[in-house]
């Protein structure tokens, strides 16, 4: 591979395997994500979607194969996985905001301790991204005082404060009340439009169809097929994807 091609790649996974004991959670995963691309990973429960996305920032350690993120090879060297974690932002299903800190402190903690930003600069940065997710007036509150949708938008702002190159979303709307899903999806859509590289595990097929550049369909720890949404939703190649779509789209 040429240096130029490598430059265009945000994430590259080659023959990645991951086991929980004897259970193969990921089998022979080959995935490339280009810079600026939005990829939606979908598939039935237990198909390895979350495991895959959690391997990209080394929250889970893969057992075999190679993973490059932003050109950095992920291995057990702290120097490398720290660099990868700084280059990626992650949003979780259960928000995982720090409940004992205010919204503002949630956003400034990492910039101040990791990037050694001063208090004022960190606050300015945090307010910039809180404004972006339309929630600046809640900065002094604690996470428990916010609705689920607001908490998830704070989680997005908190991740953005580290100015990541890649955003990873692990079922960001799955624990939200239905009426709060939209505000989170719209925030995500805005990020895509600004050219952020995004990998989203989601069951929101409407979002996938509208926003994704590519759908990656997984089953039993394998990538079964990948296609642009127009093709995937209208003419899925695999039988498994067809039955899956029959279940989720009515």
């Amino acid at each position: 591979m040429t240096a130029a091609a490598q430059d265009l790649e945000a994430v590259k996974m080659e023959a990645v395997y991951k086991y929980y004991g004897d259970f193969p959670a990921l089998t022979e995963i080959d995935l490339k994500v280009a810079k600026g691309e939005t990829v939606v990973i979908c598939g039935p429960s237990g198909s390895g979607k979350s495991t895959l996305i959690r391997c990209i920032n080394y929250i889970e350690k893969h057992d075999q194969g190679l993973i490059y993120v932003n050109g950095i090879q992920l291995d057990n060297q702290p120097k490398n996985f720290d660099a990868v974690r700084r280059a990626t932002g992650m949003v979780f299903q259960n928000f995982n905001l720090f409940p004992h800190m205010t919204i503002l402190d949630n956003c400034t903690l990492a910039p101040m301790t990791v990037n050694r930003l001063g208090k004022d600069a960190a606050k300015e940065l945090a307010m910039h991204f809180l404004t972006k997710v339309r929630i600046p007036d809640q900065a002094g509150k604690f996470p428990g005082q916010l609705s689920g949708g607001q908490q998830q938008r704070v989680a997005i702002a908190r991740a953005l404060c580290m100015q990541p190159k890649i955003m990873l979303f692990d079922e960001p709307t799955s624990s939200l009340d239905p009426e709060m899903v939209k505000e989170v999806l719209e925030t995500m859509k805005k990020l895509t439009e600004e050219g952020m590289t995004m990998i989203c595990v989601t069951h929101e097929m409407g979002f996938a169809r509208e926003v994704a550049d590519r759908i990656v369909f997984m089953n039993d720890g394998r990538i079964v097929e990948q296609a642009p949404p127009a093709d995937f939703f209208t003419q899925p190649k695999s039988e498994r994807a067809r039955t899956f779509l029959d279940q989720v789209i009515r």
């Binding site: 929250i59 700084r86 979780f92 903690l109 990492a110 991740a159």
Partner: peptide, 12 residues
């Protein structure tokens, strides 16, 4: 999930 969120932010 609290530790995971902290690691994902790059916190040592």
């Amino acid at each position: 999930g609290q530790s995971e969120a902290a690691w994902a932010l790059g916190l040592p």
